[in-house]
Write a protein that binds this DNA or RNA. Structure first.
Lengths: 349, 349
DNA sequence: CTGAAAGCGCTAACAC
DNA sequence: GTGTTAGCGCTTTCAG
């Protein structure tokens, strides 16, 4: 097979009878080129199928741009710990290319902490922002600030309604709720109700949960209309939620449970104590406690939101945007990954 | 946060009091450096934590290396069509960097065609080989030839036993069989047998099927020992396999079926005709016919082997190896992805 | 054994 | 408006 050298700027210059500087300007609209020169250059570029050499470009651009990242504190929560691992993982790759990332943390339980970190972030004068905005109002403030300063923004994990970031990277919560409902309806016993459980500490943060609930209910409504569902918000304290669960099981025959957060292990450990292994339990995220209960069969399915890859993709996307000036897809929804005890290990290389 | 420029070869040269040429030679063992100069340079490099700039390196290396790819003909089979899409997808990205890929096809049904293409491949004098060796003996011959010529080899989809390619990229068939068994045992009715079905056209090719069968049976044996399993090899012709299925269902009460290939739709369309929707069917791969039957509930689960990404990763791995001289993990097993009708769309972006 | 210098393809600063 | 030129960090001759 023939492998002709792919064309360079130099070739265009020769063919158009101009200098490479002019070609560069013509191709990148960096001002002051005669209109017909520009047209000629563009035409030739098209004809010989010119593709800029990204390697050379990024070598010359010693840009030193800094992107600020706002995420929940990883020590608080294993999910966010995994996201942080993703950040650290790819961060160093970019330093070589003059792209730096500064991480700011906030406390998942305190809006004020988000607001505080957001202010710090802004005063650090970044060239771009990546955020996981668990607090709607505060997130909206930060987004507005970025608009003002015309900073590019990528949101991941959670999207704030009525904003238009460069890209949203995360899972489709509504659809994942449907998946959970399908899994329960396939595996739970015929009789009994399904319970949708939220933990209240999270409810105040995350708009996701309601989306998940909506998705779940929509599936049940259309596909198994005879199945009754109950929704409960559990208190975050151990004593309290155990008590709440006890009452719930006393009052209802429950054959399937959907926990809308990564805290399925809490419900699982209760089921386990009570020897209620036949109740099918579905939750989210590969945290260590969830994995343990998945392995022993207490949790039947976990839906993996892959925070690590979400973070990695977020940084990569920013690099594509800043370094390569590529155009970015406005949203990258992740596959809704179904994890059972047998395929778990294949996700852990 | 401080962002010190990361050190360059130049810096090492200055600190060691030698020229950058010498540093380069010392660091890369390209001959003739005084032993103590070498040691000094290495020591300094370590101390200032020198990391070579890969961008600059790949800019200068106009290597023009060609890697030959041997895969089944994409027009024959949708699975391989997807793999080919993956190849084409990423191929162009590498041409810029002087890395070219030449694709050779073979007929999935004819060993001789593999052998012929393999010979053609070798005589094209590639600098490396990527192969999906569906024929064991012929694949072994090609692998041996590559060893002789000391060409790096990456195998994907199928690995030939007792070979040591640079890397194997694919799924763990044994484990995927276990996953299939788990899915069936969770969703099928209590009574009845499980059937493992192979199609004979494929059996002669691929060592995978037996692995999948072994995995499946091992799970059943340890987790649901009471469940009976039968194994059948179906003839590839429509009339024949329909007749075989008819007999099988007449002789056994079957509540779950595992098809070890991407041909689950064949069994599915039979079930569909016979109004046997309650029989749970699990198969492999997101081909269009499988997807249709997944959507309407005839197929319950598909295990996605993601040929597209397998191909992409194969090419990427070769690039990492040749361009960046990175060390390569000897095997990259893919996640065993469970696809149902509700999460299907999330895999199709 | 070592140093000097050319050049990969592109961008940006500076002349004209 | 356009041409020229100096690098980005590295590899690779080519002298010495």
């Amino acid at each position: 097979m023939k492998k002709p050298d792919n064309p360079r700027i130099k070739d265009i210059a020769r063919l158009a009878g101009v200098s490479i500087g002019t070609v560069d300007r013509a191709l990148h609209n960096r001002g002051r080129v005669a209109t017909d020169t520009k047209r000629r250059v563009e035409e030739i570029a098209r004809q010989i199928n010119y593709k800029p050499n990204l390697i050379a470009r990024s070598l010359v651009r010693k840009s030193r741009t800094t992107v600020a990242i706002l995420v929940p504190d990883p020590v608080q929560d294993e999910y966010w710990q995994q996201a942080y691992e993703g950040i650290v993982n790819v961060m160093s790759r970019f330093e070589q290319h003059g792209l730096f990332f500064d991480t700011f943390f906030y406390d998942l339980d305190k809006k004020e902490s988000f607001a505080g970190s957001a202010r710090k972030l802004i005063s650090s004068k970044p060239d771009g922002v990546i955020m996981a905005p668990n607090f709607l109002n505060e997130g909206r403030w930060l987004y507005g600030k970025c608009q003002e300063l015309s900073l590019p923004v990528i949101m991941f994990d959670t999207i704030i309604p009525e904003t238009n970031p460069l890209s949203f990277i995360g899972t489709d919560s509504y659809q994942s709720g449907r998946v959970a409902a399908e899994l329960l309806s396939m595996t739970a016993k015929k009789g009994g109700k399904f319970a949708i459980l939220h933990f209240d500490e999270e409810l105040l943060n995350s708009p996701h949960m309601l989306e998940k609930e909506r998705g779940f209910l929509s599936f049940i409504k259309s596909e198994c209309p005879k199945r009754d569902c109950i929704v409960a918000v559990l208190n975050n304290k151990k004593r309290r939620y155990r008590e709440q669960l006890r009452k719930m099981f006393a009052a209802n025959r429950i054959s399937g449970i959907f926990v809308s957060t990564s805290k399925a292990y809490r419900v699982g450990s209760y089921l386990s104590c009570m020897k209620m292994k036949k109740t099918v339990l579905v939750g989210y995220d590969l945290t260590s406690r969830n994995e343990t209960l998945l392995a022993d069969g207490t949790i039947r399915f976990l839906i993996n939101q892959n925070p690590r890859r979400q973070a990695e993709v977020s940084l990569n996307t920013f690099s594509d945007y800043l370094v390569y000036r590529e155009t970015i897809k406005p949203s990258k929804f992740f596959p809704i990954e179904i994890i059972t005890r047998t395929n778990l290990s294949s996700y852990k290389d």
